[in-house]
Design a protein around this nucleic acid. Structure first.
Length: 416
RNA sequence: GGAGGGGUGCCCGAGUGGUUAAAGGGGGCGGACUGUAAAUCCGUUGGCUCAGCCUACGAUGGUUCAAAUCCAUCUCCCUCCA
């Protein structure tokens, strides 16, 4: 807490820069100055394309939270309107079109997450949905009013469109940039929002809005982008077997979530601590400087802190003790992923392959067989030698059996 | 609307009548080594009642003893022209 108060005196711009958030800026000096002198209203947009947010979004949320700590006012924009169009940025093919119902239900889930990280009381932050102004636009009116301000020639030079020139780009998607630019204009007029932030991939969309505000209102607006979460090798982070690393506990369990960060590469520890936790910079530097296997201590802190932010202290504690139990010494308690099985199913004996299938450790029997043949499966700590092995009640201790796949994936089967 | 090119396994991409469950690469998974790291090496990567069978090369129908490969129709995409 003292740390935070001390930080208060610093310019939030410097904090963001020091922590490695900042990517590109439209006007570096002006932005820095404004953030130091004024209470700035800024926005970040989130398109509800899935039923949960993921780590990429979390960085943006961190920025909003930090900005708010320093007295600035975030607008969390839910892209109920823009999702109807679909952002082509960073994509090689067109997005699947989502139904309005789907978009709305996703948007509701996003809302809940924002409420967890931002203080919306007393107008300290607001949440808006661009469906409110985009869905009922009059086409011709809009074209004359806003469309006239965009040069197709210039739009085509934008990176996000350039790489779609080969694979094709529909007119629908081509309009995305205009939609997002219009959002910024709306928020500028309605809430005095003068800054838009986003991931690096949003650069051209943000520029579009800055330009539009200048043309329509002769106003000054600014944009800033943040580095995407990538590994030291430049690969996108936050990918798991199941796709993205989701923030929703239903889609990525706290234990899996914890393990993801616990297993991060050495070289990425500092960056992740800076971007994904509120730990003071000095502490992060110190943790990241640990040498050799001691760097694992930093990974534990990272995993614990991030899990705590997303899933709460209790879930973080459970995930940590589960990990300690499985990988080291420690009482076995906590949240190891598990599957229930009926007693009668086991009484007659169940094939190990079926059990692997049931637990989700293998996607097919062939895969299960392969895993066993390659020595990748163990049951209660003993390697399974034969894929024809049958698991019976004798294998259960206190109503459960522990399966392990590979070195790090554990799964319990609970008798029911 | 016209002319041309193309749709192959998770992705990229070879393959133009049989020996092709389909080269090669990427990614994934497992193993070895380690620190629950990285790098490296080895193996594996459609399914099943697994040395046998089934399903697969955009879709449907056809030619053939035999088709991802030939023909027809449809469909989607790309390039150029309008």
């Amino acid at each position: 807490m003292q740390e935070r108060i001390k930080n208060m005196q610093k310019n939030v711009f410097d904090v963001l820069q020091e922590r490695g958030f900042i990517g590109q800026l439209t006007h570096e000096e002006e932005i820095r100055q404004l953030l130091a002198d004024e209470k700035v209203t800024f926005y970040i947009g989130f398109d509800p394309t899935a039923d949960s947010l993921h780590v990429g979004h979390f960085i943006q949320i961190m920025v909003m939270a930090i900005m708010q700590q320093y007295g600035h006012k975030p607008i969390a924009l839910i892209g109920g309107g823009t999702t109807m169009v679909g952002d082509p940025s960073g994509r090689t093919d067109m997005r699947k079109m989502l139904s309005l119902e789907q978009i709305n239900s996703n948007g509701e889930k996003f809302k809940k997450v924002f409420e967890k990280f931002l203080d919306f009381s007393d107008d300290k932050a607001i949440m808006v949905n661009n469906a409110d102004w985009l869905l009922n636009l009059n086409y011709v009116e809009f074209l004359r009013d806003v469309g006239a301000c965009f040069s197709v020639n210039r739009m085509l030079t934008a990176d996000c469109y350039k790489n779609r020139m080969e694979n094709g780009l529909s007119f629908l998607e081509f309009n995305y940039m205009i939609m997002q630019s219009y959002d910024f204009l709306m928020l500028y007029q309605k809430y005095g929002c003068t800054m838009q932030f986003g991931g690096n991939d949003q650069w051209s969309n943000i520029l579009g809005g800055v330009d539009l505000i200048r043309r329509k209102c002769a106003g000054s607006a600014y944009g800033m982008t943040f580095n995407l979460l990538v590994t030291s090798e430049g690969k996108k982070m936050g990918k798991t077997e199941g796709g993205a690393l989701w923030l929703d506990a239903e889609k990525t369990s706290p234990y899996e979530f914890y393990q993801y960060w616990r297993n991060i590469a050495d070289a990425d520890v500092e960056n992740c601590l800076m971007l994904l936790t509120f730990l003071p910079t000095e502490e992060v530097k110190q943790l990241a400087s640990l040498q050799g296997s001691r760097i694992n201590e930093a990974k534990v802190v990272l995993a614990y802190e991030v899990t705590k932010l997303i899933h709460g202290q209790e879930a973080a504690d459970e995930a940590r003790s589960a990990a300690e139990a499985l990988f080291g010494q420690g009482e076995e308690k906590g949240s190891i992923p598990s599957t229930d099985i009926a007693v009668q199913a086991v009484e007659e004996g169940i094939d190990i392959t079926d059990l692997l299938l049931l637990s989700g450790l293998a996607a097919s029997k062939s895969e299960a067989r392969r895993l066993v043949q390659q020595g990748g499966i163990s049951l209660n700590g003993a390697k399974v030698e034969n894929f024809a092995d049958v698991v019976t009640l004798d294998n259960f201790e206190e109503g459960k059996v522990m399966l392990r796949k590979g070195k790090k994936i554990f799964h319990q089967i609970l008798l029911k």
